[in-house]
Amino acid sequence: PKYTKWTALVASITIFVLAIFIGFEIITKVPPTLHTPLMSGSNAISGISIVGALLSTALGANWFASLLGLLAIIMATVNVVGGYMVTHRMLSMFQKR
């Protein structure tokens, strides 16, 4: 079979759609005390754009692209590091009660 760019795109769309379905199914009943930690924890996951930020900084087409990448790294790292730590802090507060 002949693999083209479009083959890869269809594969990506397949992954996207299936992951959407997993996302819908994964969360069912959440006790109200976990609403905010869950929001915070999943927010930290959306900081995954840090991966894209690393790639575009190191392999950027020119200095301006690398600069935008640097800004992206800083923002995404705050999101990731802060997000996980804050979630942990919230959860440990509940456990003490």
Binding site: I20, F24, L38
Partner: peptide, 10 residues
């Protein structure tokens, strides 16, 4: 997409 979908449910 995981966060996008589960975020809607939440």
């Amino acid at each position: 997409s995981l966060v996008g979908a589960s975020g809607i449910i939440l």
